[in-house]
Amino acid sequence: MDAELFLGYGLVAAVAAVLGSMLGLGGGVFLVPILTLFFGVDQKVAIGASAVAVVTNSIVGSSVHLRSRFTNLRLAMLLQVTTAAGATAGALFGVGADPRIVSAVFGGVLLYAAISMLIRREAKSAPSAPVAGSAALAGELDGESAAPSTLAAAFHDPAIGRDVRYRPRRLPLGLGISAGAGVISGMLGVGGGVVMVPAMNLVMAVPLKAAVGTSAFMVGITSVATAFVFYSQGEINPTVVVPAIIGVFVGGQFGSRLTRRLRVQRLAAVFSVLLFYLGLSLLLQAFGVTLPGQR
């Protein structure tokens, strides 16, 4: 085991986990491009390592979100059905696909994430159908069907010092987007938060911190489906996976705590530039163009 490489992979994973945890995107969004573009790691090995690292990041990060009550467990299980199915299908496709196709898809996803982050606005309480009391949240008011009502939830946001109540909207669309997120997650090993957070926030009117918390829990389960498919094909390489796991442990702890104390939207512009650069690099790589400093 090359000690310098081990430390390098670990450091990259730590930084990726901090960024991914703070943005609810999962560390894989940063980890796979950096490992492949700057360290020359085989793409499928990087994706396999990322999937395992995302699982670890989710285990650590989602515990913090669960304690803070940001995570909507019912919504997570509902969306997880299509996300996990999509992830399995995506991983089966990705593990056998031409690396250039995977690079092109990855680049497109990162550019989408960069642009959506720039235009993202946190869902206001009015469009997310504020709920008057606990009975409504248990699905007993308004004469609505139980399914959407029981998905309603509340949490205390320490950054603004008040309780936030919400009810997810557009469930069928959310389920469809979740399936797509799962396919992308399985193909790229990114966890799916890069799609799920904006989808829950912008489409389903879930407040950003609840979307981040719910996504952080979901990406772990989604990535398990991905990781086992890559494991079945012998693409889980412990010399890359282990430093990635250690890195995300350190970075995930730090990032989750930062999320509780910061107004995440303020960081969006900075991180969107980084995502844009990585996305463009992968797109160019798919067409055989390598930027200076990359492999």
């Binding site: 009550r69 467990l73 709920v131 949490f155 205390h156 309780d163 829990f217």
Partner: peptide, 17 residues
């Protein structure tokens, strides 16, 4: 917080554990 989701609090705690 005494919120409407307190019903799920033990389950959340079990998942955390």
């Amino acid at each position: 917080m005494t919120g409407p989701d307190d019903r799920l609090a033990p389950l959340s705690q079990a998942v955390v554990t």
